[in-house]
């Protein structure tokens, strides 16, 4: 369960005047429930990654607050980290380690001993169907294989909440379908899943709840049906354009 309330983050502009700030995220409030898939939908540069980074306690918000499973991201970062599995924008796995070693490493860092870690990695291999490449070094893995390893790593400590930053980026159709299946199953198991994307169809197909973000602000946050009815549109793409305050092209 994630509750974000007025999150904001500014960066200093590089090479510009002093004190000139770039707004990354200005006002982000939304709720992501357990057992549901929440999509953070927005164009490139809207502040999706920054929002997820704040929720993953990697960066500290300049104002606003958020809670993950009841823990504050600013005051109790370590508890938040115990509770989340975070899959960043790029898979970011170690090329000289095997898939198994990548997963075991993270398991050990979260505090399992070697035996428990290997057992947990075995379970994840089963769960994410990684048998074909489990014992190979990850150098040269396809994007789909890398994403699976990274997702397994994020799941290693059985987190209740999953934060996935554009997980389907760069995946082929089959890999994407496979990943969606996994995400659905995790949601059915009761996990809270928050994932970001700029692909309308994907969000429409997968999410129970959608938060549309534009220029660092949440424009609208509702179920798919709710968003369509409040914007008076038939598909999400048109609703998205209306929601971020643009005019529809007249045909």
């Amino acid at each position: 369960m994630i509750k974000a309330n007025g999150l904001a983050k500014f960066y200093k502009r590089k090479g510009g005047k002093k004190n000139e700030k770039v707004v990354a995220v200005e006002d982000v409030s939304f709720t992501a429930e357990d057992g549901a898939i929440t999509g953070l939908l927005g164009p490139n540069g809207a502040g999706k990654s920054t929002t997820l980074r704040m929720l993953a306690t990697l960066v500290v918000p300049d104002s606003g607050s958020a809670e993950v499973d009841g823990f504050s991201i600013t005051n109790d970062a370590i508890s938040v980290r115990r509770s989340i599995g975070y899959l960043p924008h790029n898979a970011g796995i170690y090329p000289r380690l095997t898939a198994e070693e990548n997963i075991v490493y993270f398991a050990e860092v979260v505090g399992l001993d070697k035996k428990q870690a290997q057992q947990r990695a075995g379970e994840l291999c089963e769960q994410l169907e990684m048998h074909d490449f489990f014992l190979r070094r990850t150098e040269g893995f396809s994007q789909g294989q890398k994403t699976k390893v990274a997702l397994a790593r994020a799941l290693v400590h059985k987190p209740r909440t999953l934060i996935l930053d554009e997980p389907t980026n760069g995946l082929d159709v089959m890999a994407m379908r496979g990943l969606r299946k996994i995400i659905r199953r995790l949601s059915e198991e009761g996990h809270c899943i928050l994932f970001s994307s700029h692909v309308m169809q994907e969000v429409a197909a997968l999410c129970d709840h959608i938060a549309i973000i534009s220029d660092g602000k949440i424009a609208i946050s509702d179920s798919l049906a709710g968003i369509l009815s409040s914007t008076g549109q038939k598909d999400l793409e048109d609703a998205f354009v209306i929601a971020i305050g643009e005019q529809l092209e007249l045909e």
């Binding site: 790029n90 796995i93 170690y94 979260v110 505090g111 790593r153 994020a154 400590h157």
Partner: peptide, 14 residues
């Protein structure tokens, strides 16, 4: 550079 820092830092290890 290989983007493995973010997931590592999101683990409960100071």
């Amino acid at each position: 550079e290989r983007n493995s820092l973010e997931p590592l830092l999101s683990l409960p290890l100071p």
